[in-house]
Amino acid sequence: MSQQIVTLDVREDLRLGREPFSKIMGAVAQLKPDQALLLIAPFEPAPLYGVLGRQGFTHESKAVGNGDWEILFRRDSGDAARLDRGTAKGAAAAPTAPAPGPRDIRVVDARGLEPPQPMVVILEALQELPAEGELRAHTDRKPMHLYSQLLERGFTGQTDEQADGSFITHIRRR
């Protein structure tokens, strides 16, 4: 079955110093079920693989010269809005989780993003977090500016440093 490919070139955005993450996610949000996204970027956007992977996308990447990369994101199932549910992939390295264990664990990988994009990613994810759910936010830095926003929105957060120097913050409703 042929698949329609939507191409998104973010090289100019990056050249101008613009953060293309929102643009990419917008393109993903507007993809129809039979469409795939071809992303052209000046580097391999590894953090994006995890983010889109959790939405049900697979990727094929190749370097195309001059340091540029083309990455084709295809849906791996019909469930476009899938997040990791009931499992804690990527957060398995967290030494412990708050007790009692939540039924619905969601993971957001906000590594590799320029501030304040990690905070945006996490707070938007919280909008959809079920009452008994937990969001595990993986960040490069301790999200110091996030905590007051969590408080204000009725959440608690608990941050663990990982062996690689990154951080996982476990966020649940108070």
């Binding site: 917008g26 949000a29 938007e124 994810a125």
Partner: peptide, 19 residues
Amino acid sequence: MVPMATPGIAGASHLTLTP
């Protein structure tokens, strides 16, 4: 402008993309 189609992911809800 766009409902939250992809829960938990930034930007998906508020983007305008020029094809």
